[in-house]
Nucleic acid binder design. Sequence first.
DNA 1: GTAACCTGTTACCTCAACGTAACCAGGTGG
DNA 2: CCACCTGGTTACGTTGAGGTAACAGGTTAC
Lengths: 131, 131
Amino acid sequence: MADEIEWNVLMRTCPSRTSLAEIANKWTAMIVVVLGAGPLRFTQVRTRVDGISAKVLAETLRRLERDGIVTRRSYDEMPPRVEYELTTLGHSLAEPLEALRRWAEGNIVQVLEAREAYDLRPTSGGGRDLA
Amino acid sequence: MADEIEWNVLMRTCPSRTSLAEIANKWTAMIVVVLGAGPLRFTQVRTRVDGISAKVLAETLRRLERDGIVTRRSYDEMPPRVEYELTTLGHSLAEPLEALRRWAEGNIVQVLEAREAYDLRPTSGGGRDLA
DNA sequence: GTAACCTGTTACCTCAACGTAACCAGGTGG
DNA sequence: CCACCTGGTTACGTTGAGGTAACAGGTTAC
């Protein structure tokens, strides 16, 4: 058993923490989620992920490609055509990220209500002691 | 059916996107994960989440409290004691975040290998066209 | 000729995130 | 009297993420 290394995201120096920092990110989450439905071209991703800039999209896609999460397939046509697709590894990541997306959409009402209650409470800013 | 609003994180202006941006975050993920095992005091969280500063921890915990994800329970003792605990909503968030943590730790070897392969390939930086 | 198409790249700038260090209350132990 | 405990807060400085805008490049349509 050579690969018995203990990876732990809670450790400052563990490479898995750097990895977590990259995938626990809104742009990564949205890009991987839209690619979960199948391969897309650059502009198609850009259209689906509303508000992302070409710069951030290109950077994020290159990072994901480097990490083995997406593949980049470029066709030598004019105008250019490039397709991005999740790898097997990428699809395994799409599952928890899709769950996160569902959580955000499914619980936003509760979150908004909680915020309202928090902001309205008279003790806001102090005095929330017990006993 | 009064609550048939369509929430969509892919829309720039949707509140659920702001929520996604807050939970798809390394500090949030780690804090929620460690609180998933049960309530903890401020210093206990700080010890478990290696490398987090008191400032960032306090800010993140207050944001999570405001969003209804954690509760803050302060005991009027000396020295002070404050316990943070996941709400039911928080526990439902802990599941996908724990999955993300497991992904990061379980696939870091593959990610590191992919990076190495990407960085070593002769075509690095261009010429990766097909057809 | 020139405008549009697509996938970027680059330069420049801004702002939020984060780290560090000092400091606070207020009671206990030496 | 002084230091120490916890759970922060505040001020200050740095870093990096991200926004904007201009441009490249080659072929097709006007």
